[in-house]
């Protein structure tokens, strides 16, 4: 499924690594939410990130995308140290994320939620609005056309003029994923895309991820508690516990590892 087998141990210097972290630590008072964490995300992979509640998975996403500042350690994207960059600068390099509790723009319509996503639009520049109205309109028309395609792909077409706040939880998840389709990006970080999504929508979501990975070459990192989703999509799987990197491997390797069973899966597996 992925270009890189989990059995190849790849270091952060490997050219196939798009995103990596070394020694990443985030302290909240005395608590180390993320503690000397490392990982490498290989081009074309769908990497799973699992671990018990409170293991620091979402905090790790926050550190990687710049929403939160790390206490120490570094993040490297496309071979460049991005530890000091602001979130929007990291996003513009081609790394997009979603949130655990979906965060849509409530009082924007579904269509607008999509249309605002493309980065550095001409019509976002003040002088262009007043001095190049024609060019702004043409550029926005192109964005509109693209949004229509994404509405089709994500099956959100019937809801296009609905306020995003009025969508169901699952539809919001879908919208968040659809929004990433509007953006020229190579890495998509998904924080629990399956949480609260009904089985039918879940299938749509899963199809979209596979299609994006296979046909569009997008690299994914997915935090998820739904082990079916992890088993079906992710290779390798990284296990985090107490803010640390516990192990990584294929889903089967992870599932049968006694440390993981102890830390996370318990008797449930």
């Amino acid at each position: 499924m992925s270009l890189v087998s989990p059995h190849d141990r790849v270091g952060p210097d490997d050219p196939r690594v798009l995103l990596s972290a070394e020694g990443l630590t985030r302290r909240f008072g005395g608590v180390r939410a993320v503690d000397d964490m490392r990982f490498s995300l290989c081009e074309g992979s769908i990497t799973g990130l699992i671990g018990p509640n409170g293991a620091g998975k979402s905090t790790l996403f926050n550190l990687v995308t710049g929403v939160d500042r790390s206490s120490s350690g570094s993040v490297t994207l496309f071979g460049e140290d991005i530890t000091k960059l602001r979130p929007y600068q990291r996003a513009r390099k081609g790394m997009i994320r979603t949130f655990q509790l979906s965060r849509e723009f409530g009082r924007l319509t579904v269509l607008e939620n999509l249309m605002l996503a493309p980065q550095q639009q001409l019509g976002e520049r003040l002088p262009a609005i007043f001095f190049q109205p024609g060019a702004v309109r043409r550029s926005d028309d192109a964005v509109y056309e693209r949004a229509l395609e994404v509405l089709q792909i994500s099956r959100l077409e019937p809801l296009r003029d609905e306020y995003a706040a009025n969508l169901s939880g699952g539809q919001k998840k879908l919208l968040e994923l659809a929004r990433t389709l509007m953006i020229e990006c190579s890495i998509i970080l998904l924080d629990e895309p399956g949480a609260g999504v009904n089985p039918a929508l879940m299938q749509t979501l899963r199809d979209m991820i596979v299609e994006l990975n296979r046909d569009h070459g997008k690299t994914f990192m997915i935090v998820e508690h739904d082990m079916d989703l992890i088993a079906a999509l992710c290779d390798p799987v990284i296990v985090m516990t107490e803010g640390r990197h516990l192990m990584e491997g294929s889903f089967d390797e992870v599932r049968s590892d006694p440390r993981v069973i102890e830390a996370y899966l318990g008797g449930a597996a």
């Binding site: 995308t65 710049g66 929403v67 602001r86 979130p87 929007y88 990291r90 996003a91 513009r92 997009i96 994320r97 949130f99 965060r103 849509e104 723009f105 409530g106 009082r107 924007l108 607008e112 249309m115 605002l116 996503a117 980065q119 550095q120 639009q121 001409l122 019509g123 976002e124 520049r125 003040l126 609005i129 702004v136 550029s139 926005d140 964005v143 929004r179 953006i183």
Partner: peptide, 21 residues
Amino acid sequence: APLGRTLRAIREDDVVAEVLG
């Protein structure tokens, strides 16, 4: 303008607007 759309997005959730670039 598209700028207005972006401004309203910042009003709704500035963190998400930022991670969208």
